[in-house]
Write a protein that binds this DNA or RNA. Structure first.
Lengths: 239, 239
DNA sequence: CTGCGACCTTGCCCCAAGGGCAAGGTCAAG
DNA sequence: CTTGACCTTGCCCTTGGGGCAAGGTCGCAG
Protein backbone atom coordinates (compact mmCIF):
# COMPACT_ATOMS: atom_id res chain seq x y z
CA UNK A 1 0.00 0.00 0.00
CA UNK A 2 1.44 3.30 -1.15
CA UNK A 3 1.58 6.62 0.61
CA UNK A 4 0.63 9.75 -1.30
CA UNK A 5 4.26 10.70 -1.85
CA UNK A 6 5.13 7.32 -3.30
CA UNK A 7 2.18 7.34 -5.63
CA UNK A 8 3.07 10.86 -6.70
CA UNK A 9 6.67 9.88 -7.31
CA UNK A 10 5.80 6.84 -9.38
CA UNK A 11 3.30 8.60 -11.58
CA UNK A 12 5.30 11.81 -11.82
CA UNK A 13 3.01 14.36 -10.20
CA UNK A 14 3.16 16.23 -6.90
CA UNK A 15 1.32 15.12 -3.78
CA UNK A 16 -0.50 18.41 -3.82
CA UNK A 17 -1.90 17.71 -7.25
CA UNK A 18 -3.26 14.38 -6.02
CA UNK A 19 -4.95 16.11 -3.08
CA UNK A 20 -6.47 18.59 -5.52
CA UNK A 21 -7.85 15.72 -7.58
CA UNK A 22 -9.41 14.28 -4.45
CA UNK A 23 -10.88 17.65 -3.50
CA UNK A 24 -12.39 18.08 -6.94
CA UNK A 25 -13.86 14.62 -6.98
CA UNK A 26 -11.67 13.37 -9.79
CA UNK A 27 -10.04 10.60 -7.86
CA UNK A 28 -11.84 8.74 -5.08
CA UNK A 29 -10.38 9.23 -1.62
CA UNK A 30 -8.64 5.99 -0.65
CA UNK A 31 -8.88 4.37 2.75
CA UNK A 32 -6.78 5.86 5.53
CA UNK A 33 -4.45 3.86 7.72
CA UNK A 34 -4.59 3.98 11.53
CA UNK A 35 -2.75 7.30 11.66
CA UNK A 36 -4.88 9.01 9.04
CA UNK A 37 -2.46 8.67 6.11
CA UNK A 38 -4.00 7.98 2.73
CA UNK A 39 -3.11 4.49 1.50
CA UNK A 40 -3.26 3.79 -2.22
CA UNK A 41 -3.46 0.61 -4.25
CA UNK A 42 -2.19 0.04 -7.76
CA UNK A 43 -5.68 0.58 -9.20
CA UNK A 44 -5.46 4.17 -7.96
CA UNK A 45 -2.26 4.58 -9.93
CA UNK A 46 -4.09 3.48 -13.05
CA UNK A 47 -6.80 6.03 -12.45
CA UNK A 48 -4.25 8.72 -11.77
CA UNK A 49 -2.41 7.95 -14.98
CA UNK A 50 -5.64 8.30 -16.93
CA UNK A 51 -6.41 11.60 -15.25
CA UNK A 52 -2.97 12.96 -16.01
CA UNK A 53 -3.18 11.88 -19.62
CA UNK A 54 -6.35 13.87 -20.04
CA UNK A 55 -5.06 16.82 -18.02
CA UNK A 56 -1.89 17.01 -20.07
CA UNK A 57 -4.06 17.12 -23.15
CA UNK A 58 -5.47 20.34 -21.73
CA UNK A 59 -8.82 18.99 -20.63
CA UNK A 60 -10.10 21.04 -17.67
CA UNK A 61 -10.35 19.09 -14.44
CA UNK A 62 -14.07 19.75 -14.17
CA UNK A 63 -14.57 18.18 -17.57
CA UNK A 64 -12.41 15.20 -16.66
CA UNK A 65 -14.64 14.57 -13.68
CA UNK A 66 -17.72 14.57 -15.89
CA UNK A 67 -16.10 12.20 -18.33
CA UNK A 68 -15.25 9.78 -15.56
CA UNK A 69 -18.72 9.97 -14.10
CA UNK A 70 -20.98 9.82 -17.12
CA UNK A 71 -20.39 8.21 -20.45
CA UNK A 72 -20.26 9.59 -23.98
CA UNK A 73 -16.59 8.98 -23.46
CA UNK A 74 -15.69 7.83 -26.93
CA UNK A 75 -17.03 10.90 -28.74
CA UNK A 76 -15.49 13.16 -26.10
CA UNK A 77 -12.13 11.55 -26.66
CA UNK A 78 -12.43 12.08 -30.38
CA UNK A 79 -13.23 15.73 -29.82
CA UNK A 80 -10.32 16.16 -27.44
CA UNK A 81 -8.06 14.64 -30.03
CA UNK A 82 -9.25 17.09 -32.66
CA UNK A 83 -8.77 19.91 -30.23
CA UNK A 84 -5.26 18.75 -29.52
CA UNK A 85 -4.45 18.64 -33.22
CA UNK A 86 -5.73 22.20 -33.58
CA UNK A 87 -3.59 23.37 -30.69
CA UNK A 88 -0.51 21.78 -32.17
CA UNK A 89 -1.14 23.56 -35.45
CA UNK A 90 -1.71 26.85 -33.67
CA UNK A 91 1.58 26.48 -31.85
CA UNK A 92 3.37 25.76 -35.09
CA UNK A 93 1.86 28.88 -36.62
CA UNK A 94 2.90 30.91 -33.59
CA UNK A 95 6.36 29.53 -33.98
CA UNK A 96 6.51 30.71 -37.56
CA UNK A 97 5.34 34.16 -36.55
CA UNK A 98 7.94 34.25 -33.84
CA UNK A 99 10.62 33.40 -36.34
CA UNK A 100 9.57 36.32 -38.49
CA UNK A 101 9.60 38.55 -35.45
CA UNK A 102 13.14 37.40 -34.69
CA UNK A 103 14.51 37.71 -38.19
CA UNK A 104 12.73 40.90 -39.15
CA UNK A 105 14.58 43.74 -37.54
CA UNK A 106 12.70 45.04 -34.59
CA UNK A 107 14.15 48.50 -34.97
CA UNK A 108 11.69 50.94 -36.47
CA UNK A 109 11.77 51.22 -40.23
CA UNK A 110 13.89 50.58 -43.34
CA UNK A 111 16.15 53.45 -44.32
CA UNK A 112 14.29 54.20 -47.50
CA UNK A 113 11.10 54.74 -45.52
CA UNK A 114 12.89 57.06 -43.11
CA UNK A 115 14.24 59.02 -46.09
CA UNK A 116 10.76 59.21 -47.58
CA UNK A 117 9.30 60.51 -44.33
CA UNK A 118 12.06 63.11 -44.18
CA UNK A 119 11.15 64.46 -47.62
CA UNK A 120 7.48 65.02 -46.81
CA UNK A 121 7.65 68.30 -44.85
CA UNK A 122 9.74 69.92 -47.59
CA UNK A 123 7.05 68.98 -50.13
CA UNK A 124 4.41 70.78 -48.13
CA UNK A 125 2.85 67.99 -46.08
CA UNK A 126 1.62 68.66 -42.58
CA UNK A 127 3.19 67.16 -39.50
CA UNK A 128 -0.02 65.21 -38.97
CA UNK A 129 0.38 63.60 -42.38
CA UNK A 130 3.94 62.61 -41.62
CA UNK A 131 2.90 61.00 -38.37
CA UNK A 132 0.13 59.12 -40.12
CA UNK A 133 2.46 57.87 -42.83
CA UNK A 134 4.99 56.78 -40.25
CA UNK A 135 2.35 54.82 -38.36
CA UNK A 136 1.05 53.29 -41.53
CA UNK A 137 4.38 51.96 -42.77
CA UNK A 138 5.37 50.81 -39.34
CA UNK A 139 2.26 48.68 -39.29
CA UNK A 140 2.58 47.39 -42.79
CA UNK A 141 6.25 46.47 -42.43
CA UNK A 142 5.57 44.79 -39.10
CA UNK A 143 2.70 42.67 -40.33
CA UNK A 144 3.44 42.03 -44.01
CA UNK A 145 7.21 42.02 -44.31
CA UNK A 146 7.12 40.16 -47.63
CA UNK A 147 4.96 42.57 -49.56
CA UNK A 148 5.58 45.80 -47.66
CA UNK A 149 8.57 46.92 -49.70
CA UNK A 150 6.76 46.55 -53.02
CA UNK A 151 3.75 48.37 -51.69
CA UNK A 152 5.88 51.10 -50.25
CA UNK A 153 7.77 51.73 -53.48
CA UNK A 154 4.56 51.87 -55.41
CA UNK A 155 3.02 54.37 -53.06
CA UNK A 156 6.05 56.53 -52.49
CA UNK A 157 6.77 56.83 -56.22
CA UNK A 158 3.54 58.79 -56.53
CA UNK A 159 5.39 61.81 -55.16
CA UNK A 160 7.58 61.89 -58.27
CA UNK A 161 4.62 62.76 -60.49
CA UNK A 162 3.76 66.45 -59.89
CA UNK A 163 0.10 65.93 -60.72
CA UNK A 164 -0.27 63.07 -58.29
CA UNK A 165 1.72 64.94 -55.67
CA UNK A 166 -0.77 67.79 -55.90
CA UNK A 167 -3.69 65.42 -55.33
CA UNK A 168 -2.06 63.83 -52.32
CA UNK A 169 -1.25 67.24 -50.89
CA UNK A 170 -4.86 68.17 -51.25
CA UNK A 171 -5.84 65.00 -49.38
CA UNK A 172 -3.71 66.25 -46.51
CA UNK A 173 -5.26 69.73 -46.70
CA UNK A 174 -8.96 68.76 -46.59
CA UNK A 175 -8.46 67.26 -43.17
CA UNK A 176 -9.89 70.32 -41.46
CA UNK A 177 -12.64 71.38 -43.86
CA UNK A 178 -16.33 70.67 -43.38
CA UNK A 179 -17.27 67.16 -44.55
CA UNK A 180 -19.79 68.61 -46.96
CA UNK A 181 -17.50 71.23 -48.47
CA UNK A 182 -17.56 70.80 -52.28
CA UNK A 183 -13.76 70.43 -52.24
CA UNK A 184 -14.18 67.01 -50.65
CA UNK A 185 -16.37 65.85 -53.47
CA UNK A 186 -14.03 67.29 -56.08
CA UNK A 187 -11.04 65.61 -54.49
CA UNK A 188 -12.86 62.28 -54.52
CA UNK A 189 -13.34 62.65 -58.28
CA UNK A 190 -9.69 63.42 -58.81
CA UNK A 191 -8.64 60.45 -56.69
CA UNK A 192 -10.91 58.12 -58.60
CA UNK A 193 -9.49 59.37 -61.89
CA UNK A 194 -5.91 59.08 -60.69
CA UNK A 195 -6.50 55.59 -59.36
CA UNK A 196 -8.07 54.39 -62.58
CA UNK A 197 -5.24 55.91 -64.58
CA UNK A 198 -2.66 54.24 -62.43
CA UNK A 199 -4.15 50.82 -61.82
CA UNK A 200 -6.99 50.42 -64.32
CA UNK A 201 -9.90 48.41 -63.02
CA UNK A 202 -7.66 46.05 -61.09
CA UNK A 203 -7.10 47.65 -57.70
CA UNK A 204 -4.01 46.47 -55.81
CA UNK A 205 -5.15 44.15 -53.06
CA UNK A 206 -3.70 43.72 -49.64
CA UNK A 207 -3.68 40.38 -47.92
CA UNK A 208 -7.42 39.76 -47.61
CA UNK A 209 -7.03 37.78 -44.39
CA UNK A 210 -5.56 40.76 -42.63
CA UNK A 211 -7.26 43.55 -40.76
CA UNK A 212 -4.46 46.00 -41.52
CA UNK A 213 -6.16 47.98 -44.30
CA UNK A 214 -9.22 48.39 -42.12
CA UNK A 215 -7.03 49.39 -39.22
CA UNK A 216 -5.21 52.03 -41.17
CA UNK A 217 -8.30 53.38 -42.82
CA UNK A 218 -10.15 53.37 -39.53
CA UNK A 219 -7.42 55.44 -37.96
CA UNK A 220 -7.48 57.83 -40.89
CA UNK A 221 -11.25 58.22 -40.87
CA UNK A 222 -11.42 58.74 -37.15
CA UNK A 223 -9.05 61.67 -37.26
CA UNK A 224 -11.26 63.89 -39.43
CA UNK A 225 -14.90 63.94 -40.51
CA UNK A 226 -13.87 65.19 -43.94
CA UNK A 227 -11.56 62.24 -44.42
CA UNK A 228 -14.32 59.95 -43.26
CA UNK A 229 -16.64 61.29 -45.92
CA UNK A 230 -13.88 61.11 -48.51
CA UNK A 231 -13.38 57.46 -47.72
CA UNK A 232 -17.11 56.80 -48.05
CA UNK A 233 -17.21 58.52 -51.42
CA UNK A 234 -14.25 56.56 -52.71
CA UNK A 235 -15.71 53.26 -51.62
CA UNK A 236 -18.94 54.11 -53.34
CA UNK A 237 -17.32 55.14 -56.62
CA UNK A 238 -14.56 52.56 -56.82
CA UNK A 239 -16.83 49.76 -55.67
CA UNK B 1 -6.68 57.83 -33.45
CA UNK B 2 -8.15 54.57 -32.21
CA UNK B 3 -10.13 53.86 -29.08
CA UNK B 4 -9.25 50.85 -27.00
CA UNK B 5 -12.13 48.85 -28.42
CA UNK B 6 -11.12 49.52 -31.99
CA UNK B 7 -7.53 48.59 -31.33
CA UNK B 8 -8.68 45.43 -29.58
CA UNK B 9 -10.95 44.54 -32.46
CA UNK B 10 -8.31 45.02 -35.11
CA UNK B 11 -5.64 43.05 -33.33
CA UNK B 12 -8.02 40.39 -32.09
CA UNK B 13 -7.78 40.73 -28.33
CA UNK B 14 -10.18 42.07 -25.71
CA UNK B 15 -10.02 45.60 -24.34
CA UNK B 16 -9.50 44.12 -20.91
CA UNK B 17 -6.39 42.34 -22.07
CA UNK B 18 -4.98 45.63 -23.32
CA UNK B 19 -5.66 47.26 -19.96
CA UNK B 20 -3.89 44.37 -18.29
CA UNK B 21 -0.86 44.92 -20.49
CA UNK B 22 -0.86 48.58 -19.49
CA UNK B 23 -1.17 47.68 -15.81
CA UNK B 24 1.75 45.24 -16.05
CA UNK B 25 3.92 47.71 -17.87
CA UNK B 26 4.02 45.74 -21.10
CA UNK B 27 2.50 48.38 -23.27
CA UNK B 28 2.99 52.10 -22.61
CA UNK B 29 -0.14 54.01 -21.65
CA UNK B 30 -1.11 56.18 -24.63
CA UNK B 31 -2.23 59.79 -24.37
CA UNK B 32 -5.78 60.41 -23.26
CA UNK B 33 -8.24 62.57 -25.12
CA UNK B 34 -10.15 65.40 -23.44
CA UNK B 35 -12.64 63.01 -21.88
CA UNK B 36 -10.04 60.63 -20.51
CA UNK B 37 -10.35 57.93 -23.18
CA UNK B 38 -7.14 56.24 -24.23
CA UNK B 39 -6.24 57.14 -27.81
CA UNK B 40 -3.94 54.80 -29.75
CA UNK B 41 -1.82 55.20 -32.83
CA UNK B 42 -0.83 52.54 -35.33
CA UNK B 43 2.55 52.13 -33.64
CA UNK B 44 0.72 50.87 -30.57
CA UNK B 45 -0.94 48.23 -32.74
CA UNK B 46 2.50 47.06 -33.84
CA UNK B 47 3.63 46.77 -30.24
CA UNK B 48 0.46 44.95 -29.31
CA UNK B 49 0.93 42.47 -32.12
CA UNK B 50 4.44 41.74 -30.92
CA UNK B 51 3.22 41.25 -27.37
CA UNK B 52 0.50 38.87 -28.49
CA UNK B 53 2.92 36.88 -30.61
CA UNK B 54 5.09 36.30 -27.59
CA UNK B 55 2.14 35.67 -25.28
CA UNK B 56 0.68 33.10 -27.64
CA UNK B 57 4.02 31.37 -27.61
CA UNK B 58 3.45 30.89 -23.90
CA UNK B 59 5.93 33.49 -22.68
CA UNK B 60 4.76 34.83 -19.29
CA UNK B 61 3.80 38.49 -19.34
CA UNK B 62 6.45 39.36 -16.77
CA UNK B 63 9.10 37.90 -19.02
CA UNK B 64 7.74 39.76 -22.03
CA UNK B 65 8.12 43.00 -20.12
CA UNK B 66 11.74 42.23 -19.35
CA UNK B 67 12.41 41.37 -22.96
CA UNK B 68 10.93 44.63 -24.13
CA UNK B 69 12.83 46.63 -21.54
CA UNK B 70 16.31 45.14 -21.58
CA UNK B 71 18.10 43.43 -24.38
CA UNK B 72 19.47 39.92 -24.81
CA UNK B 73 16.48 39.64 -27.05
CA UNK B 74 17.97 37.48 -29.75
CA UNK B 75 19.10 34.68 -27.45
CA UNK B 76 15.83 34.84 -25.56
CA UNK B 77 13.92 34.41 -28.79
CA UNK B 78 16.01 31.42 -29.68
CA UNK B 79 15.30 29.87 -26.31
CA UNK B 80 11.59 30.55 -26.63
CA UNK B 81 11.62 28.87 -30.00
CA UNK B 82 13.28 25.78 -28.55
CA UNK B 83 10.78 25.76 -25.76
CA UNK B 84 7.96 25.96 -28.23
CA UNK B 85 9.35 23.05 -30.20
CA UNK B 86 9.54 21.00 -27.02
CA UNK B 87 5.96 21.82 -26.15
CA UNK B 88 4.78 20.78 -29.58
CA UNK B 89 6.52 17.45 -29.22
CA UNK B 90 5.06 16.94 -25.76
CA UNK B 91 1.59 17.59 -27.09
CA UNK B 92 2.14 15.09 -29.88
CA UNK B 93 3.23 12.50 -27.34
CA UNK B 94 0.19 13.24 -25.22
CA UNK B 95 -1.94 12.80 -28.27
CA UNK B 96 -0.47 9.38 -28.89
CA UNK B 97 -1.12 8.39 -25.29
CA UNK B 98 -4.65 9.61 -25.58
CA UNK B 99 -5.17 7.49 -28.63
CA UNK B 100 -4.05 4.43 -26.75
CA UNK B 101 -6.38 5.34 -23.92
CA UNK B 102 -9.23 5.63 -26.41
CA UNK B 103 -8.53 2.44 -28.32
CA UNK B 104 -7.60 0.27 -25.37
CA UNK B 105 -10.83 -0.63 -23.68
CA UNK B 106 -11.24 1.35 -20.51
CA UNK B 107 -13.34 -1.31 -18.92
CA UNK B 108 -11.39 -3.22 -16.37
CA UNK B 109 -9.51 -6.21 -17.70
CA UNK B 110 -9.39 -8.70 -20.58
CA UNK B 111 -11.59 -11.73 -20.06
CA UNK B 112 -8.72 -14.13 -19.78
CA UNK B 113 -7.35 -12.12 -16.85
CA UNK B 114 -10.72 -12.11 -15.15
CA UNK B 115 -10.89 -15.87 -15.60
CA UNK B 116 -7.40 -16.25 -14.17
CA UNK B 117 -8.31 -14.17 -11.13
CA UNK B 118 -11.40 -16.29 -10.63
CA UNK B 119 -9.34 -19.48 -10.53
CA UNK B 120 -6.98 -18.25 -7.80
CA UNK B 121 -9.14 -18.74 -4.69
CA UNK B 122 -9.93 -22.33 -5.70
CA UNK B 123 -6.20 -23.03 -5.97
CA UNK B 124 -5.66 -21.92 -2.39
CA UNK B 125 -4.57 -18.29 -2.81
CA UNK B 126 -5.58 -15.71 -0.25
CA UNK B 127 -7.94 -12.86 -1.00
CA UNK B 128 -5.06 -10.46 -0.51
CA UNK B 129 -3.12 -12.20 -3.26
CA UNK B 130 -6.05 -11.97 -5.60
CA UNK B 131 -6.37 -8.26 -4.95
CA UNK B 132 -2.69 -7.76 -5.52
CA UNK B 133 -2.78 -9.66 -8.79
CA UNK B 134 -5.78 -7.71 -9.94
CA UNK B 135 -4.03 -4.43 -9.19
CA UNK B 136 -0.89 -5.59 -10.91
CA UNK B 137 -2.51 -6.60 -14.18
CA UNK B 138 -4.71 -3.57 -14.20
CA UNK B 139 -1.60 -1.44 -14.08
CA UNK B 140 0.34 -3.43 -16.59
CA UNK B 141 -2.48 -3.56 -19.13
CA UNK B 142 -3.13 0.15 -18.70
CA UNK B 143 0.44 1.23 -19.20
CA UNK B 144 1.92 -1.41 -21.52
CA UNK B 145 -0.95 -2.60 -23.67
CA UNK B 146 1.37 -4.00 -26.35
CA UNK B 147 3.36 -6.35 -24.17
CA UNK B 148 0.90 -6.99 -21.36
CA UNK B 149 -0.78 -9.98 -22.95
CA UNK B 150 2.47 -11.80 -23.59
CA UNK B 151 3.64 -11.11 -20.08
CA UNK B 152 0.37 -12.20 -18.63
CA UNK B 153 0.31 -15.54 -20.48
CA UNK B 154 3.83 -16.27 -19.42
CA UNK B 155 3.07 -15.56 -15.80
CA UNK B 156 -0.33 -17.21 -15.60
CA UNK B 157 0.91 -20.40 -17.26
CA UNK B 158 3.04 -20.98 -14.18
CA UNK B 159 -0.07 -22.19 -12.39
CA UNK B 160 -0.27 -25.17 -14.74
CA UNK B 161 2.96 -26.64 -13.39
CA UNK B 162 2.19 -28.13 -9.95
CA UNK B 163 5.74 -27.54 -8.68
CA UNK B 164 5.68 -23.88 -9.65
CA UNK B 165 2.18 -23.50 -8.29
CA UNK B 166 3.39 -24.71 -4.92
CA UNK B 167 6.18 -22.15 -4.87
CA UNK B 168 3.84 -19.30 -5.74
CA UNK B 169 1.38 -20.45 -3.08
CA UNK B 170 4.17 -20.36 -0.58
CA UNK B 171 5.00 -16.80 -1.65
CA UNK B 172 1.44 -15.89 -0.73
CA UNK B 173 1.69 -17.72 2.62
CA UNK B 174 4.90 -16.13 3.94
CA UNK B 175 3.23 -12.72 3.89
CA UNK B 176 2.58 -12.85 7.61
CA UNK B 177 5.67 -14.62 8.93
CA UNK B 178 8.59 -12.88 10.57
CA UNK B 179 11.03 -11.46 8.01
CA UNK B 180 13.83 -13.51 9.51
CA UNK B 181 11.96 -16.78 9.62
CA UNK B 182 14.05 -19.43 7.82
CA UNK B 183 11.11 -20.15 5.51
CA UNK B 184 11.71 -16.82 3.84
CA UNK B 185 15.25 -17.72 3.06
CA UNK B 186 14.27 -21.17 1.84
CA UNK B 187 11.58 -19.69 -0.40
CA UNK B 188 14.09 -17.30 -1.89
CA UNK B 189 16.27 -20.26 -2.86
CA UNK B 190 13.37 -22.07 -4.47
CA UNK B 191 12.39 -18.96 -6.41
CA UNK B 192 15.90 -18.46 -7.68
CA UNK B 193 16.07 -22.07 -8.81
CA UNK B 194 12.67 -21.91 -10.50
CA UNK B 195 13.52 -18.66 -12.26
CA UNK B 196 16.81 -20.00 -13.53
CA UNK B 197 15.09 -23.15 -14.75
CA UNK B 198 12.41 -21.17 -16.54
CA UNK B 199 14.38 -18.32 -18.05
CA UNK B 200 18.06 -19.26 -17.78
CA UNK B 201 20.37 -16.32 -17.20
CA UNK B 202 18.27 -14.05 -19.40
CA UNK B 203 15.62 -12.53 -17.16
CA UNK B 204 12.54 -11.16 -18.93
CA UNK B 205 12.80 -7.37 -18.98
CA UNK B 206 10.04 -4.85 -18.64
CA UNK B 207 10.14 -1.55 -20.47
CA UNK B 208 13.15 0.05 -18.80
CA UNK B 209 11.81 3.58 -19.22
CA UNK B 210 8.82 2.82 -17.07
CA UNK B 211 8.36 3.05 -13.34
CA UNK B 212 5.75 0.29 -13.32
CA UNK B 213 7.92 -2.58 -12.06
CA UNK B 214 9.15 -0.39 -9.23
CA UNK B 215 5.61 0.67 -8.47
CA UNK B 216 4.33 -2.87 -8.30
CA UNK B 217 7.25 -4.17 -6.32
CA UNK B 218 7.05 -1.18 -3.99
CA UNK B 219 3.42 -1.93 -3.30
CA UNK B 220 4.24 -5.58 -2.69
CA UNK B 221 7.13 -4.84 -0.37
CA UNK B 222 5.22 -2.27 1.60
CA UNK B 223 2.46 -4.71 2.45
CA UNK B 224 4.64 -7.13 4.39
CA UNK B 225 8.11 -7.05 5.99
CA UNK B 226 8.62 -10.67 5.00
CA UNK B 227 7.94 -9.90 1.35
CA UNK B 228 10.29 -6.94 1.59
CA UNK B 229 13.07 -9.18 2.82
CA UNK B 230 12.24 -11.75 0.17
CA UNK B 231 12.57 -9.10 -2.50
CA UNK B 232 15.91 -8.00 -1.09
CA UNK B 233 17.20 -11.59 -1.10
CA UNK B 234 16.08 -12.16 -4.68
CA UNK B 235 17.70 -8.98 -5.90
CA UNK B 236 20.91 -9.98 -4.22
CA UNK B 237 20.98 -13.49 -5.67
CA UNK B 238 19.61 -12.81 -9.14
CA UNK B 239 20.93 -9.28 -9.68
C1' DC C 1 -33.28 68.88 -26.06
C1' DT C 2 -33.62 64.51 -24.76
C1' DG C 3 -33.40 60.17 -25.17
C1' DC C 4 -30.98 55.79 -26.37
C1' DG C 5 -27.49 52.33 -27.04
C1' DA C 6 -22.82 51.68 -27.44
C1' DC C 7 -18.77 53.04 -25.84
C1' DC C 8 -15.23 54.36 -22.21
C1' DT C 9 -13.32 54.81 -17.11
C1' DT C 10 -11.83 52.64 -12.50
C1' DG C 11 -12.35 49.21 -8.94
C1' DC C 12 -13.54 45.06 -7.25
C1' DC C 13 -14.17 40.05 -6.95
C1' DC C 14 -13.84 35.44 -9.40
C1' DC C 15 -11.84 31.41 -11.97
C1' DA C 16 -8.34 27.28 -12.79
C1' DA C 17 -4.55 24.43 -11.23
C1' DG C 18 -2.02 24.18 -8.28
C1' DG C 19 2.61 26.27 -5.19
C1' DG C 20 4.15 27.40 -0.68
C1' DC C 21 3.94 27.84 4.07
C1' DA C 22 2.33 27.05 8.78
C1' DA C 23 1.33 24.11 12.64
C1' DG C 24 0.93 19.87 14.09
C1' DG C 25 1.01 14.43 13.94
C1' DT C 26 3.82 10.10 12.46
C1' DC C 27 7.46 7.06 11.12
C1' DA C 28 11.96 4.78 10.71
C1' DA C 29 16.78 4.94 11.72
C1' DG C 30 20.68 5.88 14.48
C1' DC D 1 15.23 9.93 22.26
C1' DT D 2 16.12 12.72 18.78
C1' DT D 3 16.28 13.81 13.96
C1' DG D 4 14.75 14.23 9.39
C1' DA D 5 11.53 12.92 6.21
C1' DC D 6 6.83 12.10 5.75
C1' DC D 7 1.93 12.97 6.38
C1' DT D 8 -2.40 15.96 7.75
C1' DT D 9 -5.45 20.29 7.13
C1' DG D 10 -5.99 25.17 6.22
C1' DC D 11 -4.94 29.35 4.25
C1' DC D 12 -3.09 32.76 1.14
C1' DC D 13 -0.53 33.67 -3.48
C1' DT D 14 -0.04 33.37 -8.42
C1' DT D 15 -1.33 34.16 -13.94
C1' DG D 16 -4.08 35.96 -17.40
C1' DG D 17 -7.55 37.70 -17.70
C1' DG D 18 -13.56 37.58 -17.33
C1' DG D 19 -17.43 39.92 -15.45
C1' DC D 20 -19.84 43.19 -12.96
C1' DA D 21 -20.85 47.72 -10.92
C1' DA D 22 -21.19 52.66 -11.04
C1' DG D 23 -20.42 56.41 -13.45
C1' DG D 24 -18.85 59.46 -17.56
C1' DT D 25 -19.18 60.09 -22.93
C1' DC D 26 -20.35 59.70 -27.63
C1' DG D 27 -23.16 60.10 -31.71
C1' DC D 28 -27.47 59.64 -33.66
C1' DA D 29 -32.79 59.79 -33.89
C1' DG D 30 -36.88 61.77 -32.69
Amino acid sequence: MLTIGQLAGYVGVTAKAIRVYHAKGLLAEPDRDSSGYRRYRAADAVELIKIRTLAEAGVPLARIRELRAGDGLASALRQIDDDLAARIEALQATRARLRRLASGRLSPLPDEVVAYLGRLPGLGFSERWVTLQSDLWLLVFATHPETARTNFRDQSSMLDDPALLAVVLEYDRVHDVDPHDPRVDALASKLVAATRARYGDELPAYDPGSAIPALVQGAVNASSPAWGRLDALLRERLG
